[in-house]
Design a protein around this nucleic acid. Sequence first.
DNA 1: GTGAAAGCGCTAACAT
DNA 2: ATGTTAGCGCTTTCAC
Lengths: 352, 352
Amino acid sequence: MSTITIKDIAREAGVSTATVSYVINGSRSVMPEKRQRVLDVISKTNYQPNRVAKSLRTKKTNIIGVLAEDILGFPSGGIINGISEYVEKSDYNILLNDLRMLDSLFNKYDQVIHQKEKINNALSFLVFGAKVDAVIYIGMFNRDITGIISNINKPVVIAYSTSDDEHICSVNYENEDCAAELTKHLIENGHKQIAIITGLAHTSPSQTRLKGINRAFKDAGLILDGSLVRNGDWERTSGYDCMKDLLKAEKSTLPTAVLAMNDLMAVGAMDAIREANLKVPDDISVVGFDNREVSNFVFPKLTTVEIDMKAIGYNAAQMATQKLSGEGEYADKRNLIIPSRLVVRDTVKSII
Amino acid sequence: MSTITIKDIAREAGVSTATVSYVINGSRSVMPEKRQRVLDVISKTNYQPNRVAKSLRTKKTNIIGVLAEDILGFPSGGIINGISEYVEKSDYNILLNDLRMLDSLFNKYDQVIHQKEKINNALSFLVFGAKVDAVIYIGMFNRDITGIISNINKPVVIAYSTSDDEHICSVNYENEDCAAELTKHLIENGHKQIAIITGLAHTSPSQTRLKGINRAFKDAGLILDGSLVRNGDWERTSGYDCMKDLLKAEKSTLPTAVLAMNDLMAVGAMDAIREANLKVPDDISVVGFDNREVSNFVFPKLTTVEIDMKAIGYNAAQMATQKLSGEGEYADKRNLIIPSRLVVRDTVKSII
DNA sequence: GTGAAAGCGCTAACAT
DNA sequence: ATGTTAGCGCTTTCAC
């Protein structure tokens, strides 16, 4: 059972090791009888080729290094799930390095720069030490990390973040269209006084989502009331604070709906609304973004936008392997955008 | 930059490859000057020893295979986080295989048996193909999986499940004491009429938690009223249904508190209570189990028991590597139990 | 179509 | 203390 090698198979089947290799890899045609003899011995012995030896010889490990900022980050699990699905059918494996930066990076999304050395050490080990064929970097926050990841001569694809570096590709989700769709959903339900709770104002998701929101207003012949916009920081408490502030208005100028740029802040807003003895969605409608697990557990269930993490991972893996083989639709692509979709639940009331 | 080997270092430093190997691994003493020369060349060139070649030669990959029933399963992320932390400082790596059985196993926890072949194929590849030194199997549900995992001659430790197989070790969390503590928390707040919503009745966590609950009652000189016990199936809707049923009682015999054996069912119970126009915790107190993310997002925030996933992973990795080296406190241990702890939040009212 | 043998980059036994 | 070299299990060139 233990350590049976290609030599054993060759001896048992009465052929050379070369022939065994040929039948395993289909690299040359082999006489049907011999072929069958080899196959029989292999299945009888449960022989598994030693990937380590194979890798050393071919200089290809069939391993994709997955470098995650933190596996507990909200997108990570789904993305790895997607990578895993692709990788399974294409005979690759995943070497996982979890940087565990959740605590150090919490709400300081720009601070990755300080982790540059740690990241590149890990990357360097993966590529030059473990000899992975390609690496997928999984961000915890959707942002631009140009300049962070040093140039290695292997495919690097970033999932859930972006980079302008030329040696790097990325797979990210669509932000603007779905923000527009979410806004449109509110408008179609009769809402005109819509408050916005943004994420950190200078971040790309905030700005892009705002673009989509503005577009939806414009398309409906409406104008976004700037006095109804509050800047949050993506965290629940900021949603609470912003909503609290919004609630100070006179009853007649109160927004009928609030769009928070993520579910966490939406929940915070719902906290504040409840505290003011108002009801969601009867008094105020609320929508979020991300479709986090919690959005289905709060009451009422939150209408939000779903980001397809699994597809991000799947496509990132596909892109990485296609860059490796030089074949396939993604072989020459730089950036990929995965569509997001509206998830209608119970927090929007029609006031038409 | 690309593919520099030990030969290059040797030539550059004017020593033999053996000497380079000795200084890298500290396997023999080397003259200080030579040693320094080698070190200098290494750092100047950013040389990274080829782990593949090293593995082939030493028959040790320094890789731990992580076989997860599903990385999206509730315990998986935290456990991997913990494994990762241990592994980082002990120079191991993680080869991740995500079985993605979430859908097929959903609420049919006993059905793993049907996946036996898939599991063992993956295991077999990990061990005989990828040559990992040890494997950690991560369950999605805490249960006994005796007979599922075939015997390989390498350490296998199961995280978040158990097995009676002799060739297998496990790291799991404490169930009985914390269930007792949770119950005691209710009792100490004056509750006597406590309803219980169990998980699937025949499962080990259900039975063990019930033991703890009974013990707490007994310790307080109380007796658990059997008519207040309902059997759920761990899912939210079952918590809802059980609570609905409980709520049919006359007002005077209504429980003042309900202990659900997990957070999901607790949330379901809260749904039913809200629907009956009752308030948590003013009318009925509710507690859960697991400390899932949602327990902090529902309103009011749920009092529950936290399972230390990170510690499970960390200790599983520690156990695996100590079995490998034959040294350390866990080298001869079979099973490890990680304490769980009460997390008091807002769903229990004192009625003393 | 098939086999002999070299060699991937390392470690470690052996020699000195 | 250090160098020489065999060999880990595979693939692949080269020869037949």
